[in-house]
């Protein structure tokens, strides 16, 4: 066993442990802020696994997109909806968790069996070392050009959709003077439309 393979093994074990423990923490921790930060750790260890698979470009994309964008977005969402609320008790919650855990364990055993019994054709061509970004670029501008362009349209649609969905209603003109306000800094009085406790809100719903 050479020193390179030992290093590779140590890196793989460390990254796997971070990945599994981090994802367990994401799912199980009661405080959701800790979950969000552990999720960043999981994304980073996945990026480390990509580096071990000779994929530097995708590892960089993983760090930029997941850790830099998605995780920050999740943290902002947690800040915006962070109200302490008492979750109502559900009867049979423990039973439900155990049952779904058994189902997930069964799924895992199924995938494990497929993974370990299938004769994978691993004797493929020798992997690229450093120029994977070049090959990915060639792919993106030749045989994957249409999905690449469609992805840009998809991102534009997602951006506009997110803005429209998360936008708040504001006054377009000043309440007192009637002049137009440039940025709509005065937020409208907002009533939650779909609360169960006050049935009188249905008239507001019809009005809107």
């Amino acid at each position: 066993m050479t020193i390179a393979s030992v290093t590779q093994l140590i890196c793989f074990v460390a990254l796997s442990l971070t990945l599994v423990l981090g994802s367990l923490g994401v799912v199980l921790l009661p405080n959701i802020v800790y979950s969000a930060f552990l999720l960043a750790g999981v994304f980073l260890s996945v990026a480390g696994l990509y580096l071990m698979l000779n994929a530097s470009f995708v590892a960089a994309a993983q760090v930029l997109v997941y850790v830099g964008a998605v995780n920050v977005l999740i943290l902002f969402a947690i800040m915006l909806v962070n109200k302490k609320e008492e979750m109502a008790e559900i009867p049979g919650l423990l039973l439900r968790r155990v049952l779904s855990g058994a189902v997930c364990l069964g799924l895992f055993l199924l995938i494990l069996r497929v993974d370990l019994t299938t004769p994978w054709a691993v004797t493929g061509p020798t992997p690229l070392a450093d120029d994977s970004a070049v090959v990915i670029g060639i792919h993106l501008f030749s045989d994957y050009l249409l999905p690449f362009e469609l992805a840009s349209v998809l991102l534009l649609m997602a951006m506009i959709g997110a803005i429209v969905l998360a936008r708040r209603d504001v006054f377009s003109s000043d309440v007192i003077t009637g002049e137009a306000v440039d940025q709509g800094l005065i937020e409208k009085e907002r009533t939650p439309l779909l609360l169960e406790s006050n049935p009188g809100e249905t008239t507001l719903l019809e009005k809107v």
């Binding site: 994929a55 470009f57 995708v58 994309a61 993983q62 997109v65 997941y66 964008a69 998605v70 994978w120 054709a121 691993v122 493929g124 061509p125 020798t126 992997p127 690229l128 994977s132 090959v135 990915i136 792919h139 993106l140 994957y144 999905p147 992805a151 998809l154 991102l155 997602a158």
Partner: peptide
């Protein structure tokens, strides 16, 4: 491991990351 020269899986991963974002 299997497609070491063409790395189509990495291109797919890029698209999956885009859709996930």
């Amino acid at each position: 491991y299997i497609d070491g020269q063409e790395i189509r899986g990495q291109v797919f991963t890029i698209f999956v990351i885009t859709v996930a974002a």
